[in-house]
Write a protein that binds this DNA or RNA. Structure first.
Length: 440
RNA sequence: GCCGCCAUCGUCUAGUGGUCUAGGACAUCGGGUUCUCAUCCCGAAAAUCACGGGUUCGAGUCCCGUUGGCGGCACCA
């Protein structure tokens, strides 16, 4: 029976964790949880030149936002310098390493080959040892390199399976040689394929938002991002496309991972996010939208208020793919619309007709019994349209533009209801005034 | 250049030698519902399974080669 599964996510603090790294972290997390093991976090901050101070909190925030909690205290490599040095010295003293210009180099084996079974794809990967050159394990500033630090820590942390990106495949022989030199058990390795940008190149900053937190800011839900990422390279045996974290844990196995790199297509993410938004309870969606708006307005949010949101959410729920879509769709409700001649003309061709129609509509509205009822409103204006040679679409579009300035909005009657009779009349009047002015 | 990984619709993928004249999802296009936009429903187009050789009665599935993509070859991780 295998020992306890202990795995780790080991980012270096050089910026916001991007979706590729996070997907590897996700796979690692799922593997741990599926096997009732531990998921640990270690930050590899051994290169002070490349370090970005904010990345520490970005790493924590990203993991927390996605719901990937780690099980033990975070390990910071920068606090363990003496441990690495001690191990480097141990190799030096046993003639397995040598010093050159202040740095310590590891002597690699030059004969034979080194191989391992990679859990992703369950395949054997082999390197000829003569291809593996001696490499630095302790730099002249006494900081360890990745190779030494990760091997030492993985051993000391009792890591059972080393999961990381496939760009580490070529250095794995170095790591195996280190384990052997120390006389330690060699963990299992699993290298997951990369995520590529649409042009098949490695995902990088120039492709725009690639950090996990960028997606948060763009209005994506963590559940949707997770779900999208997990499907990049993995299909659950059940074939389900929409699944919760616990369903993923239930079904996950490293051996089912695809070996080919995947391209990140944001359009599918957007679809999935829409699916999640639609199945979210209104009350929960309310707090999510409110929090999102507060976040991006840095707390200076005036509208919508809590009770305004209650009315609006059912109207927008099926119309937004991202939380951020809420803004352009609803801001006319709390901000004065800006009118444009051309927008009106998209509904009715002649400007003079528009003025005339709007005037009459206004009269009808003023005479309508208050409070306005949706069905009354609809009936009245359907009749109005018929008697003026307008289609229902034209009629309602004209009203829509008059009260919102836009051709697209949530359903008209409900929007009018939220605005209220007074505000609706006021806007219709303003629209009319605008048109009369611009046509004179 | 050397070494390694990879290769099914535009994209994510199903497929583990015969049931594949290749299935699903996103995107695209067309239609229906409808006050706009969406949602929802129906339908279409889209992959000679990168190419070439084998093995086999039979290959998308196994083997070899080629091509292409990606990665590594730092006192970065």
């Amino acid at each position: 029976m295998a020992e306890e599964v202990r795995v780790r996510y080991a980012p270096s603090p050089t910026g916001n964790p991007h979706v590729g790294n996070m997907r590897t972290a996700l796979f690692t997390y799922l593997f741990a949880k599926h096997n009732r093991g531990k998921f640990l976090l270690r930050i590899e901050d051994t290169d002070k030149k490349r370090e970005v101070e904010e990345s520490y909190s970005a790493i924590y925030d990203s993991l927390k936002w996605l719901g990937l909690s780690w099980d033990e205290k975070v390990i910071l490599q920068s606090e363990r310098l003496d441990i690495y040095k001690e191990h480097a010295l141990q190799l030096l003293n046993s003639d397995k390493a040598y010093q050159q210009e202040e740095a310590i180099f590891f002597k690699t084996k030059k004969e034979g080959s080194t191989s391992w079974i990679d859990l992703v794809g369950n395949k054997s990967i082999k390197f000829e040892n003569r291809q593996v050159e001696d490499f630095v394990i302790l730099k002249s500033d006494e900081y360890p390199t990745y190779h030494l630090a990760s091997v030492v820590d993985d051993h000391l942390m009792n890591i059972s399976h080393v999961t990381r990106g496939e760009d580490w495949i070529s250095s794995t022989p170095k790591h195996i040689m280190l384990y052997e030199s120390f006389g330690w058990d060699i963990p299992q390795f699993a290298h997951s394929p990369n995520i590529l940008a649409t042009d098949r190149s490695k995902l990088s900053k120039r492709h725009g938002s690639i950090g996990v937190l960028d997606y948060k800011r763009d209005g994506f839900l963590p559940e949707a991002l997770i779900n999208f990422l997990v499907l990049l390279g993995w299909t659950p045996p059940s074939g389900k496309e929409i699944l919760t974290l616990s369903e993923m844990i239930e079904e996950f196995d490293l051996k089912d991972l695809n070996t080919a790199p995947a391209i990140f297509d944001v359009r599918k993410l957007e679809w999935m996010n829409g699916e999640y938004i639609r199945k979210t309870q209104n009350s929960k969606l309310k707090t999510q939208i409110l929090e999102y708006l507060k976040d991006i307005s840095q707390g200076k949010l005036e509208h919508p208020a809590d009770e305004e949101l209650d009315k609006v959410i059912p109207l927008v729920k099926e119309r937004i793919k991202k939380l951020s879509d809420f803004i352009p769709l609803t801001d006319f409700l709390w901000e004065k619309p800006e009118y444009e001649q051309e927008v009106f003309e998209k509904v009715v061709k002649k400007r003079l007709d528009i003025v005339k129609l709007l005037k009459e509509m206004l009269e009808v509205m003023e005479k309508m019994e208050k409070p306005w009822k949706a069905d009354m409103f609809e009936k009245t204006f359907r009749q109005f349209g018929e008697s003026h040679g307008l289609s229902a679409t034209q009629t309602f579009q004209l009203i829509r533009v008059a009260i919102s300035g836009q051709l697209v909005s949530p359903p008209l009657f409900e929007s009018v209801k939220i605005l209220g009779e007074e505000e609706t009349l006021k806007r219709a009047n303003e629209a009319l005034a605008y048109l009369e002015k611009s046509s004179s």
